[in-house]
Design a protein around this nucleic acid. Structure first.
Lengths: 207, 207, 207, 207
DNA sequence: CATGAATGAGTATTCATTCAT
DNA sequence: AATGAATGAATACTCATTCAT
């Protein structure tokens, strides 16, 4: 952000602009999202937009930051509510995936943004989200180290989190009526669950 | 395509245009690829481009069709050469992933296009490639039905092919130096291999 | 220029655009000359402008090229008409200055452009004009080497031509009613004339 | 200036703004100097700028006024220090030119501003400087009327001061390595010196 | 008096596509 | 069939200046 808003009035404007960004992205797709449309949607002057945001990228990054924060909060709430350490990995994965699907359905922006990995995954906000999830998982497996002594946990989490997000995104983007949400989630649980259960295979050593 | 070219000369022009499209996409990225640049790169008139292609989308779709066909041919060659049915699932997966990485490294267009799931995965050409791979896998598991009696094979293949392609694409795009090609492939083998080995879980029934 | 016009129609457009550029520069001043105004003045689409000119600079450069060529032609005509080698330096200077004033009065663009040395003197067209004038002068003094054995002619011509142009420009730009055209020219003749007549002073040696 | 600042604090602000203007002009060039940049550079609010200056022009004019005053002071010091009336015209010219070059090299703003004759020469401040120099010269030649009985002194001084300033400005701007400062100064001395020495020619009468 | 906020009108340049020969 | 010419509508971003507290 170029200038921090200091009065109520401008803070409201900044909020309106970020909200408008989400709306326009959903309505027109990221590729056809323009700063002029955003300003119009926010009922703000285009010059006002540029008073608070360096450029289009900056505005989208701010949106992603907010979305990520919200999602971290939701996830935090969820993991607190379920006495996480008592759950099995499969249950955790199922819960996280279900949560993810729900959030994405409620926030279609996330969906559209996830269609653009170059934007999505290079965002600081999204990085924070990814880190958060990896930390939760690391805490879980560290706690259960006896049962799941996974030495190359980091690589595996990397692979799982990235493939899972894109799978969900693609599932949501395409209208695949043959595969229901539940079917997808169970299949993914079946895919990722054993990955953390089996004795670790010699993965890293080949590097 | 708007008009099937019927003379040699026109076919050559169409080829030039598609080749130019690939070049421009690599040089400027899909987002900054314009029809004018493509025509220029092909040393053709922009009006000629529109004589043979409905619009930009059409041109890119045609490129993806060709790329997919080439890849199917290569994959075909590969699977023929290794007496596929004698291999274990893990070996097959490893082979296919290695092949995929090699091809993508040789064809940087693929890499750039894979960065845009919305374009990439809604292409008929890419769908054909995915279908081809699923057919090969289906043939394999049908042949080995005794050893791998997987009832929800379709769903699982769907998930595996999608997640695998996106994982490869992101790996290629991100230049994560901590994870080498070999490490990634082995981790993916470790992920997908057991998925086809374990007794099937009741996946679809929950839907 | 970006694209050479090949048909009559487009050549006419290019001409119209260059003419319009001159008009707009005179009407609004160089600083406030915009490509949009130029296109409007030429009754052309702004996109057409950019089909034939890389950018605004390119367009102005093209204008300066034309103006310089015209001026070279006029000067050529003049010097041919007066059996140049029979004239005295003072007469030549007087003639050239008078010519310059007349041209500038007829072409007010030149005047406005000369107000912006950064643009004016870095133009290829203007360079050609300057070179032309220096060549004429060099030819003259080479021919009369006996009478005017000036060793550092190059430096002196440089100084004279540059200071003369800016003096004329400033005279034209300011409405100095106290100093008439004639008075200025005679004063300049008195300044520059002796500069070529006196035995050369040790100028260059101090460098 | 819109409002004379009356408190110390405001005077300090005005100074800061003018200084900032000089800095921005040097850093970005006059064409790309904006009031917003100036305010930012001065760590002041843009609205404060408009409290003390009518508009951008006014601000630049104020800067030019200050610069001219400083230069007049320096010149004053110089001419006092050398017992001016004992020097020959050539010595005076050489001294003044050397002084001018030195000042301009120390104050790059002057240099940049001199690149824009339209702004530079229509400034009241610069006019004052020119008048000052002409007055000094007039005093000198009036004192030495016997040796240099120049009747049209006014016109000649007018021409000399104008051409000299523009020549210096262009020399400074162009970085012509072939012509050193010394060479230029001596060439100019050779140009202007005789202009005041020779018996006056009938200049004005032709008007 | 100071200053955070706001903005109308622009600014150079581009793009996918169509027209006319 | 080929192609030179043309273009409406954008596009990201800026500027000098004013308003409102």
């Amino acid at each position: 952000m170029r200038k921090r808003p200091q009065q109520k009035r401008s803070q409201a404007l900044v909020d309106k602009l970020i909200d408008a960004t989400a709306v326009v992205i959903v309505e027109r797709g990221l590729t056809f999202t323009t700063t002029n449309h955003i300003a119009e949607q926010a009922n703000a002057d285009i010059a006002s937009l540029y008073q608070y945001f360096e450029n289009k990228e900056d505005l989208i990054e701010e949106l992603l930051k907010r979305l990520s924060s919200e999602m971290i909060d939701i996830a935090n709430g969820y993991f607190s509510s379920i006495s996480m350490y008592d759950a099995s990995p499969a249950e955790l994965i199922r819960g996280a995936l279900t949560l993810g699907l729900n959030i994405a359905r409620q926030k279609p922006v996330v969906l559209e943004l996830a269609q653009h990995p170059g934007v999505f995954f290079s965002s600081h906000g999204v990085l924070r989200l990814e880190n958060y999830l990896q930390e939760v998982a690391t805490a879980y497996f560290t706690h259960h180290f006896r049962s799941y002594p996974i030495s190359d946990l980091h690589t595996r989490l990397h692979i799982v989190s990235r493939s899972a997000i894109t799978l969900l995104a693609r599932h949501l983007a395409e209208q695949t009526p043959m595969i229901t949400d539940q079917a997808l989630i169970e299949a993914m649980v079946a895919l990722y669950g054993p990955y953390f259960e089996v004795a670790q295979i010699e993965v890293a050593q080949t590097a």
